[in-house]
Amino acid sequence: MEQKLLETLWGTVADVLPITIIIIGFQALVIRRPIANLERVGFGFVYVLVGLAFFLQGLEMALFPLGKLMAQQLTAPDFLAGLHPAGEAVNELDWTRYRWVYVFALAIGFSTTIAEPSLLAVAMKAHQVSGGVIGVWGLRIAVAVGVAFGIALGSYRIITGTPLHWYIIVGYMIVLVQTIFAPRTIIPLAYDSGGVTTSTVTVPIVAALGLGLASTVPGRNPVFDGFGLIAFASVFPIITVLAYAQISAWWANKTQ
């Protein structure tokens, strides 16, 4: 275990090496000024590195094996067959057969997003910059609802085999219309929240769910249908964050 933890730590160091070199290079050659509170910043950097290594190693030990196993079990033919009384005629492509998959997609999308460190970082910053108007939890829950809905809808798409781009294009259209009506200050943050949601925690489990579904459902090819869940999880949070801001503004107007 110590060995693995060290390996993860080394991987994390290698991962942040380019960024460190760029920052030190620019700091030394272009800016030519010492960093304020260098010691504190240095310790913070080490905390981030060690923290990330523990976090990733812990996910590898606790969450990923179980999450992937569950995604496979929920999409396994045996489990799906067990949901029907013996002898009942079953339409294999009936999308309601996969009801537990949708519930799982919703629940796992929501809960992994709440634990996503990148989203936490952005929420903390937004809370600070907005002077407390945007709550850390409000933003995170809005994003998590978007991811949950996106992944559930993405699962439906894989099961029904409908083309990915129509869903995404309709999603963009909704974003476009909301952008016209949403409060101006929330727009950049809402767009950002699409990109930060799908990171360390969510991606591996969601990918396992997508590949599991695409290899179980008859007529689907994991190569073509297994991708795309991440895309769903990046569009829908934009919609829910914009909606959150619109509802907040509407509520504030009404109660005034």
Partner: peptide
């Protein structure tokens, strides 16, 4: 640790 380091370093 990560969140702590975020406020201190990044």
């Amino acid at each position: 640790l990560f969140l702590q380091g975020l406020e201190m370093g990044l």
